[in-house]
C-alpha cells in the first residue's frame, strides 16, 4: 500500500494527488450529493474496517454504514448528523463524533466536512477528513482521573490534619479540666482555643470542596459568634458587617484567623467590665487589600498601652503573624472602647 512508481509519474497532477491520498495517515472520504461515499483512501479503509468496494456495493449513505448508531446502541438518523449537515448547509463543519467500526466497536473521531462546489457554486459533494482520537481521549480521561485522585487525596490529608489538630485541642482541654490552678487552667484553655482555631479552618477546608484556600470572612463571622457563645456574657451583643468573599490560601487564613481570634478574645475578656456592650466585626475588601476591624465600646486599653512594647503572648502572636502576612495592625481609641484594624495586602 502507498507505493507509487518513482520518476516522472509525480509530474502528473493525478499521480501526485493519488500519492498524497494513498500515503496520508488522515482518513479522507469523498461524498456525492446523495451522501454516498464514492472514494475513500487506504487510511479510511483501515479506520472503518470497510474496503471502498464494500462501501460502493452497499449503495447507501456512508452515515448508515459507519455512523448509524449512538454509542448507547440507539439509532442515529442521518438528518441529525453534523457531518452530513455540511452538505445541505454549504458550510465547512468540524467536530467530534463516535463512529461504528465494521466489527461493531465504537471509536471516537475528529472530523472536518468541507462542501465542494461546481462552477455555478452549487454544492455537489463533501470531502470528509477524519482522525481517530481514541488515544487522545484515553489520555484526557487518564489525566482527569489523576486530577480527581489528587483532589481526593488532598481532601483526605486535610481531613487527617483536622482530626490530628482536633486531638491536640482535646488533649489540652482535658489537661485544663484536670488542673486546679486558675492561672494554669486559663493558659491551657487559651492554648486549646488557639489550636482549635487552626483545627476549624482545616475543617472548613475539608468540608468545602476546596483543598488549599478558604473563605476567610465566613469563617471570621463564625469565629466571632462562637467566641461570644463561649464568653457567655449575656449583656454583650455581637454585630457583624461586611460582604467580602475573599478566599485566602490556608496558611494566610490561619495567620489572619489567629490574629482576629486574639483580638476578639481579648475584647471579650477585658473590655466589658460592666457586663454589657457591643462587639463589632467589620470586614471590607478592596482590589488589593482585606481590612478587618474589631471594635468594642468597652473600657478601653490600659493607659500607656503600646503594641510594640506589650509582652503578653497574645500581642506577641499578633505582631509575629502580622509581620508574616505583611499586614498592618493598628488600634485607635474609639471613645468609648477600642477599634483594632488589620489591613492585609492580598496582591502579594
Amino acid at each position: 500500500m502507498g507505493a507509487v512508481r518513482a520518476g516522472n509519474d509525480l509530474d502528473q497532477p493525478l499521480r501526485r494527488l493519488e500519492a498524497v491520498l494513498q500515503n496520508a495517515t488522515a482518513s479522507v472520504f469523498l461524498m456525492n450529493d446523495r451522501q454516498h461515499c464514492i472514494y475513500m483512501n487506504p487510511a479510511a479503509e483501515q479506520l472503518t474496517g470497510f474496503t471502498l468496494d464494500e462501501v460502493l456495493a452497499a449503495d447507501q449513505p456512508l452515515h448508515d454504514i459507519i455512523h448509524h448508531l449512538h454509542p448507547d446502541g440507539t439509532p442515529f438518523p442521518m438528518h441529525d448528523c453534523a457531518i452530513d449537515r455540511a452538505f445541505p448547509d454549504h458550510a465547512k463543519t468540524q467536530g467530534e463524533e463516535v463512529f461504528v467500526h465494521k466489527d461493531g466497536s465504537f471509536y471516537p473521531v475528529a472530523f472536518t466536512a468541507s462542501p465542494i462546489h461546481d462552477d455555478t457554486s452549487s454544492t455537489i459533494g463533501t470531502i470528509i477528513e477524519v482522525r481517530n482520537i481514541a488515544a487522545e481521549k484515553q489520555r484526557e480521561q487518564d489525566l482527569r482521573r489523576a486530577i480527581e485522585e489528587k483532589k481526593v487525596l488532598l481532601q483526605e490529608v486535610n481531613h487527617r490534619v483536622k482530626n490530628s489538630l482536633q486531638l491536640v485541642a482535646s488533649l489540652l482541654a482535658l489537661q485544663e479540666q484536670s488542673t486546679v490552678s486558675p492561672e494554669l487552667k486559663q493558659s491551657l484553655q487559651e492554648a486549646s482555643s488557639r489550636v482549635g482555631v487552626i483545627a476549624s479552618l482545616h475543617n472548613r477546608l475539608y468540608q468545602t470542596q476546596d483543598y488549599d484556600s478558604v473563605d476567610v470572612c465566613e469563617y471570621l463571622l463564625e469565629l466571632g459568634r462562637e467566641a461570644m457563645i463561649s464568653a457567655a456574657k449575656d449583656g454583650v451583643r455581637f454585630h457583624f458587617s461586611g460582604d467580602a468573599r475573599r478566599k485566602l490560601p490556608i496558611s494566610d487564613a490561619v495567620s489572619l484567623a489567629l490574629i482576629v481570634s486574639e483580638l476578639i478574645l481579648n475584647a471579650v475578656k477585658h473590655a466589658f467590665r460592666e457586663g454589657n456592650g457591643t462587639l463589632e466585626l467589620r470586614i471590607c475588601e478592596t482590589d488589593d487589600c482585606l481590612t478587618i476591624e474589631v471594635i468594642d465600646d468597652g473600657c478601653g486599653l490600659p493607659a500607656g498601652f503600646a503594641m510594640t512594647k506589650s509582652k503578653t503572648l497574645g500581642m506577641k502572636i499578633i505582631r509575629a503573624l502580622s509581620r508574616q502576612l505583611r499586614a498592618d495592625v493598628s488600634f485607635r481609641n474609639a471613645e468609648p472602647g477600642t477599634a483594632w484594624r488589620i489591613a492585609v495586602p492580598t496582591s502579594r
Binding site: 506577641k316 503573624l321 508574616q324
Partner: peptide
C-alpha cells in the same frame, strides 16, 4: 524562619 510562630 518563614513560619512566624515557630520563629517566636
Amino acid at each position: 524562619e518563614d513560619e512566624a510562630l515557630v520563629a517566636l
